[in-house]
Design a protein around this nucleic acid. Structure first.
Lengths: 192, 192, 192, 192
DNA sequence: GATGAATGAGACTTCATTCAT
DNA sequence: AATGAATGAAGTCTCATTCAT
C-alpha cells in the first residue's frame, strides 16, 4: 500500500489558511457564508478551496474536527490535573466553561455541522476526548463529588445545548444552573 | 369608508392552513424550506402565501408568534394550578418539559427566528407568559422550593438552550440535569 | 338594434374615478404602476377596475383617449381664434406649448401607449384635432407665415418628440428651437 | 500581491458578446427583456452575465456607455473636419443625423437609461463629446452660421427628443424641422 | 497545483388577471 | 355590479460546484 505522496509544502500551507479562514468566517457570518468569501478570506481562489475540500460539507466537517481536536487536548490536560489530585467536580466544571468559551469563537460551527450533516472528522480525537472526560467523571464519582449516574453523554448533552451565541453573563449563569445537576447532591426528580 | 371589514372566511381558512404548513415544513426541513414548498404543502399558490405574509420573515415571525401564544396559555394554566395549591417546583419543571416537547414539533422555529431576525409578534403574549412564569417562581420561592436568585430570564435561558432537536430520552435526561439548578438546594459554585 | 342598457349611475362614477386615478398614477409613477395601486387610488377594488377595462392595455388606451379628446378641444378653440383673425403662427406655437404642458401631467402616457401597444380610442377625437390643426396650418400658409410644406403630421411629429419629461426651462427652450422650422422663413437644407 | 492581472481572454470575449447581445435585445424588445433572454442571446448562462454586470442596471449602464463612447468618437471626427475648413452648420446637422441613425439600433437604450436610473459610465467620454460639439458650435458662430445663443445643451436636448423609434422618413423630416432653430437666421419668438 | 470564469438550478418576490363570495 | 382573495408565470439575483486556462 504505497502511501499518498507527501503533500507539497504550499498545499499544506493553503490547507491551514483555508481552515483558519473558514473558522473565522463561519464564526463571524454564520454557516451561510459563501465559499467565495471563505476563499477570499483565505487568500486563495475557490478552485483551490475545492481541491482541498471537495464539498462545503467537507470543509465544515474539517473545521468541526479541528475544534474537537482542541477539546480533546483540553480534556486530557484536565484529567492529568485530576489524576494529580485536583478536585474532579471543579475541574469538570471549569472544563465545561472553557469549552463553551472556545466554542463562542467557533459560533455557528455547531449549527453548521448539523445543518449540513457533516460527518465527524477524525474519530480518534473524539475517542481521546471521551476517554479523558470519562476518567474525570469516574474520579469524581469515586470521590463522591459527582452523581453516580452521570456519563460522558451527559457532558456532550451539555455541550450541545450550551448558549454559545448568548452574551458572556448568560453563559456564566447557564453554568451555574447546570453544574448542580452533575453533583452527587442532585435531588431525585419529584415523583410525577 | 367602512372600517376594516371582517376578513373573508376562505382567507381565514387559508391563513390557518399556511401557518400550519409553514410550521410543519420548517420543523421537517429547517427554515431554509422554499416558499414554494410551504405553499404547496398548504395547498395554495405562492401568491396567496405572499398575500398573507408579505415576506418570508413575516411568515416565520407569525409561526413563532403562534408558538409564543401557546406557551403563554400554558404558563397561565400552570400558574392557576400553583395558585390552587400545586407544588411550584414540580409545576415549573413540568411546564419546562411541556414547552420543550411542544417546541420539538416547531423545531427550527427558534433558529429560524434568529436567522431571519424576525420581530416578535404580539408582545402581549410574551408579557402574559412572563407574568405567569414570574408568579410561579415567586410562589416557589415563598414555599422555599425554588432558589431565591432564580428569575424569569433563567427560564428563558433554559428554553433557549433546550435540546429540541435531540431524541426524547436526551430531552428527558436534560430536564433531569437542569432542574436541580433551580431548586433552593442548589450548592454555591466552588470558590474559583 | 337595442342599445346597451343605460349604465348604472355608480358605474359611471366609478369609470370616471378610475380614469382620473389611472392618469394620476401613471403620471406620478410611470406606466409600470400596478393595477392594484391604480384601483386603490381610485377607491375601488381591482375587480371593479377590470370590469370597466378588461385589460391594462385597455385602461391605458382610455387614458390616452381622454388626453386626445382634450387636445382636440384645444385645437378647435385655437382654430376658432385664427378664424377670428388671430395670427396663425403664433396660435399654432402657443397651441404646441399648451399641449406639451398638458402632457407633462400625463407624463408616461405616451410611453405607456407605445409600450403596451394600445389601440387609439375614439377616432373621431383624432379627426377633430387633425381637422382643426390642418385648418390652422392652412390659414397660416395663406397668410405667408407658415412654410408651405408643413402638414398636420409635422405637428404630430413634434408632439411625439416633445420633452415632456424634462424640466420647464428645457421645454421652453425646445419650443424656441423647434418653431422656426415651421415658419415660411425656414431655409432649405444645405445641398448634401 | 499581484496587481489586477490582465483579464482572461475568454472573459473579455464574453463581456463583448454580452454587451452586443444586450444592445441588440434591448433594441428589439425594449429594456424589459429578461436577463435570461439576454444571456441566451449572448450564448452564456445567467450567472456569467451577472459575473460581468452585478445588476441589470449595471448592464444597461454599460450599454449606454458604449453608445456614448461612439458618439464621442463621431463628435471628435466632426470637429476635425470643421477645423479643416468644412462648414460647421452642415457638419453639425449631419452629425445630428448620424447620431440619431445610430441611436435607432440602440432604441430603448435611452429609455432604459432613464427607467433604471443608470449612472453614466465613463465621464471622460461625455466630456470628449461635449468638448468637440462645443468646438463645432463655436466655429459655426464665428462663421455666422449658427445662432449665437446655441449651446451644447441644445444639442443634447435634440438628442433627447429625437424620434429614434419612428421610421426613417419621420426622422429625416424631423431633422429638417429642427435644424433651422440652430441657425443664425432663427427669428426671435413672437412677442407673447 | 492554482486560478477564477462559467454554469444553472433554485431562491424570493411581483403583478396582470381570474373567480368565488 | 363590486369585492378582494387566489393564481401562477416570470423576473432578478445567489451560490455551490465544475472546468478551461
Amino acid at each position: 500500500m504505497p502511501q499518498a505522496r507527501a503533500p507539497r509544502a504550499d498545499a499544506v500551507r493553503n490547507r491551514k489558511k483555508i481552515l483558519a479562514a473558514a473558522g473565522e468566517q463561519i464564526a463571524t457570518h454564520g454557516p451561510e457564508v459563501g465559499m467565495d468569501e471563505i476563499a477570499a478570506a483565505a487568500g486563495v481562489a475557490v478552485g483551490t478551496l475545492y481541491r482541498h475540500f471537495p464539498t462545503k460539507t467537507d470543509l465544515i466537517a474539517a473545521v468541526v474536527a479541528e475544534h474537537v481536536s482542541r477539546v480533546a487536548d483540553d480534556a486530557e490536560a484536565t484529567y492529568a490535573r485530576v489524576a494529580a489530585g485536583a478536585g474532579a467536580l471543579d475541574e469538570l466544571s471549569a472544563f465545561l466553561g472553557r469549552v463553551i468559551e472556545a466554542s463562542v469563537s467557533d459560533r455557528g460551527v455547531k449549527t453548521a455541522a448539523r445543518t449540513l450533516g457533516a460527518q465527524p472528522g477524525d474519530p480518534s480525537d473524539e475517542d481521546r476526548a471521551g476517554a479523558a472526560v470519562e476518567a474525570v467523571i469516574k474520579a469524581g464519582q469515586a470521590a463522591g463529588e459527582i452523581h453516580p449516574d452521570v456519563t460522558v453523554d451527559d457532558i456532550y448533552l451539555l455541550f450541545a445545548t450550551a448558549p454559545v451565541d448568548l452574551p458572556a453573563p448568560a453563559r456564566a449563569r447557564w453554568l451555574t444552573l447546570v453544574v448542580p445537576g452533575l453533583t452527587s447532591a442532585r435531588p431525585a426528580p419529584a415523583a410525577g
